[in-house]
Design a protein around this nucleic acid. Sequence first.
RNA 1: GCCGCCGUGGCGGAAUGGUAGACGCCACGGACUUAAAAUCCGUUGAAGGGCAACCUUCGUGGGGGUUCGAGUCCCCCCGGCGGCACCA
Length: 864
Amino acid sequence: MTMSAARKPFPFREFEPKWQARWESEQTFRTPGPGDAGFNPAKPKFYVLDMFPYPSGTGLHVGHPEGYTATDIIGRYKRMTGHNVLHPMGYDSFGLPAEQYAIKTGQHPAITTAANIDNFRRQLKSLGFAYDWNREIATTDPEYVRWTQWIFLQLYHAYFCEEKNQARPVADLEASGWTREQIDNVRLAYVADTPVWWSPDLGTVLANEEVEEWKAKGHTVERRPLRQWMLRITKYAQRLIDELDTLDWPEGIKLLQKNWIGRSEGASVRFEISNCNLQIEVFTTRPDTLFGATYMVLAPEHPYVPEITTPAQQSAVAAYQKAIASKSDMDRGDLNKDKSGVFTGAFAVNPVNHEQIPIWIADYVMMGYGTGAIMAVPAHDERDFEFAQRFDLPITQVVSSNTDGPPVPLLLEAFSDPGIAINSGFLDGLPTAQSKDRMIAWLEANKLGIRRIQYKLRDWLFSRQRYWGEPFPIIWKDDRHQAIPESELPLLAPPLEDYKPSGTPEPILNKAKEWIHLPDGFLRETNTMPQWAGSCWYYLRYCDPRNTARFLSEEAEAYWASSSAHAKSSPGMVDLYVGGTEHAVLHLLYARFWHKVLFDLGHVTTPEPFQKLVNQGLILGEDGQKMSKSRGNVVNPDDVVSEYGADALRLYEMFMGPLEQVKPWQMKGVEGVSRFLARVWRVAFEEHENQWRISKKIQDVACTDKGLLRVVHETIQKVGADIEKLSFNTAISQMMICTNAFTQAEVVPLREFIQLLAVLNPFAPHITEEIHERVAEVFKHPAVLLSETTWPAHDPLALVRHEIELVVQINGKLRDRLMIAKDADEETAKAAALNSPKVREHTDGKTLHKIIFIPGKLLNIVAS
RNA sequence: GCCGCCGUGGCGGAAUGGUAGACGCCACGGACUUAAAAUCCGUUGAAGGGCAACCUUCGUGGGGGUUCGAGUCCCCCCGGCGGCACCA
């Protein structure tokens, strides 16, 4: 026998493809929904979702099967426990790489995308996932694009009604006499001239959220004012924060979203400018420090800067503005220790004490947040303090850290904690919280300011200048936009010969002259949507993927959004969503936003898309480093499948450690689980002249071995409980224990062995089906699929123990273990313990102070 | 700087406040074999003691604390990973 033959202890190469083919031909995992043949509305639904992959040219990496196996195990388990399980797969197939490949080769992105999808599908199928492949979708499918564009039009035709705190159709506004312009100013999808991040070498603008990612890949980005499509996500900021509380998500992810949305409470305050009719509004979270505002700073790009700058300061201001404009934002961020700025020569009036305060410009104030202007309170803000020190501006303390007694002077650093107001007129003596309220009340009474809540979140820059994305279903005439009729959807981009970026911010579709020009002087919008568009709603389409009349039917939506058996009323549609943390603030925020708009407009019945979210941990290379081509530590799942089989790969990825944890790959570990599967195989079969034949130990008899029976039932119980907890590694170790018990048993009772196969089936579906089939044949059992059997019930009687091991501690230290009756009372346990020589050794001559008795478990004697 | 996550054998990891190290890997020993591989059976936290079954002490990043009892709870510190980063 050769070494390589010895390494293949069970014939997975034959049976894995065989079972995959059979599941496919028998449609084992077809999921009937409302309207489908075989749909049973009485069954509770369970919707378990993977983050669908971008079908890159390099295929799956081992990170993909980690989450996919986890959801597959849960999906299969839920099927076996009587649920109608929706567990679909698809492809997020728009995106830059296909287009960049097209630039290199001239091949249309649709061709490379289709080839990549075929490869992904092959790889996914080789892992035996129980997807309903009839529901497969790709975001680039014309029928999918149609409904992505349709949803965009819902946004376009809606505005955010502040009174109702929800989206409403703009038709309501038309009915109440709003003008075209007024309506265009409130649409959820709108056009704005705004400074955006534009990348000359990518030939597109990027969302704020994307900039860092592309810069890390070596692309350049610069700030440009451009006319772009925006989505008014900021209107949902508060709901996006508040409704996180209703979701079963990791706290860390909730926090990331909250911080990203960045709510702060404070006031907006108006400052008059001396010798000029302008007023400047600032936002502050510390209105209580207004008496300490000794200067003001505007962002260098602030529109008032040219108007207020005095002639003497003009050249200095212009030079500074120019220097800032040429700085990339990275430089601007890096320089945050060294404050820079220029005096404009102008003065503002502090509204509360009427002092003249100088107005500066500085790059530590951002145009994009608040009003692009601040009141500087150097005594109580670190940045203002630094700036004031650098430019010798006055510092006035207005908050004392000393809550009783005389104010503590400060000199060396800003004091930004809450304290007691001082030097602040009518605020003196008030603690910060009250002092804020008092100041806001004063500002409002004097019409100088107003209470305000400010968010960091900006509206979502939704247009790109790329080719491989959904075109906007919008046409233009006379600088006015309008929607194309729904009957014209999907609107597909025309083929191009040249996909190269032009080096200008012009959309690439501008090259398609014939496509752009429409009768009557209409022109098509030539921007395209970002890749996020497709991933914002794919979980909805899976529910009814072939519907040509609606993005999903009301019936399908109602059923798949209904609360599942164990979540009584869940605001989220998907019961379990598994994917990486990298989408914490992008996809997961965008999808929630779209879902809420669709909810407001009555198209879906839940306010949230994803009820429970789990982030799988990154799989590192064997060297403990992030897998990367350059490090040469990448593991290809195809290689693992061909060497050890799909079941071994699945099982290994689940056995590595907790799903959510970051963990390194170890090829030896794959061998370990492969050995485990071989042990299960050899419980059933023994090798005889190069053939596997049924083991004589397997007998169709009642299990008389109480110990074995107990292990089997413990395993049934623990594996089920562990799957519910997503604790797959511990479930597997229990099945190893059970298998070891079978290996050592004289007789393997058939019924119990099949129970082990059943609980192992969701983890290792191929080998368990194969063993089950072969064994069933020998014992003339009906040839049913294990995947279609029900989850075995554990027998509580089999778990009963009559005697337990009582742990005896003295002063918390383990001193003895005694076998006593399971339900022995304290007196009996105490007598037994005090009778033990080992215990006596430590208690003799000592006084017993106390006995702690945990029935069935432990006795602790406190003695000295 | 701020926020979050995490520190347990040689390694991956297990442990409702109650026997630390389950299960697996590695290593070592034995059986089978002409031999090796595979397989099966065992040993395997550290230090010390005993002919032996075993026994003792130490031990979950470090230091304090709460508790009859702490890997687990609280406070402080150190180290690693991830996110945000002049957000007024």
